[in-house]
Design a protein around this nucleic acid. Structure first.
Lengths: 151, 151
DNA sequence: CTCGATGCAAATGCTTTGCAGAAAA
DNA sequence: TTTTCTGCAAAGCATTTGCATCGAG
């Protein structure tokens, strides 16, 4: 369910607590469930994905709370918001160190993360050549994965 | 207003006519205005941008018609739909030959188009290495342009 | 005359917000 | 007790759709 270790989860929860304390925000049962589900689940979750996982632990949690909690996680830098070709926003754990891009199967919607230093270097140069100071980027490759092509 | 020559516009209009004929679609005043405005205007237009330009020529044209006509232009391959970081969909003329990506200034929203064969080649390899057959991609660089940094 | 196209308004889908009651601090 | 949170339902937005009417062929 998660490629994140137990100690990494503790670390993320500590970062969140520290942020909430700094901002005078309260620790509630709902925020604990939402952030726990998010930290423990791999992949690129939509609000609906999150909500159904959260409701397994507490069936009364509402949409708005999930939206508000995810927004909080984005603000404190623990989650990244992504818009792929569909209409919904998806969230992934933010890895402070290395950033990655995505390879998406148009058929089965599988998402593979990648990182390519050479491409990063080239886009940095390219921006520079146009007089831009690069702040961020979005690089998404859409195609058909092996499994989907062979069936 | 446009970097597209008069003969190029004629060519685009012919392609559209051919497509409509093939599909048994009708040539209407509204479709002529919308496509004409689109072909003659450079840049990355939202539906609202289009609508206000179109209404200068015919004030009674409705939102839905612009949406429907732009959808038609996308279907026949003459327009490309783009989602940058804002909430609205933008359209640009599709250049059948070479495809390009975008460099966007976060401050002034200026959009510069670029093309980089080396990056294209690398992403092709990358997809292959993951067992994907590449269909399309999206590559957007966000930063600060020269003018915005110097003021 | 016949369908496809239009314009309006209503419907949609995702996301945000206002508010009264619930629960942290 | 005070102030923030929650859940609900309502509001917002961009986009799509249903439908009566219009107009191209």
């Amino acid at each position: 369910m998660s490629g994140v270790t137990e100690s990494k989860i503790g670390e993320l929860q500590d970062q969140l607590s520290a942020y909430m304390e700094r901002k005078g925000l309260r620790s509630t049962a709902q925020r604990r469930v939402v952030s726990d589900v998010f930290f423990r689940t791999d992949g690129h979750l939509s609000i609906d994905d999150m909500l159904s996982l959260v409701r397994k632990q507490d069936p009364k949690v509402g949409y708005a709370t999930v939206y508000r909690t995810m927004k909080l996680l984005v603000e404190c830098g623990l989650a990244n918001e992504r818009q792929f070709d569909d209409t919904v926003t998806r969230f992934e754990i933010a890895h402070e160190d290395s950033h990655h891009d995505h390879l998406i199967c148009l058929e089965c919607k599988r998402i593979v993360e990648f990182e390519d230093d050479e491409i990063e270097r080239l886009q940095e140069h390219l921006a520079e050549r146009h007089g831009f100071k690069l702040v961020s980027h979005k690089h998404e490759l859409y195609g058909m994965c092996e499994d989907c092509r062979s069936t």
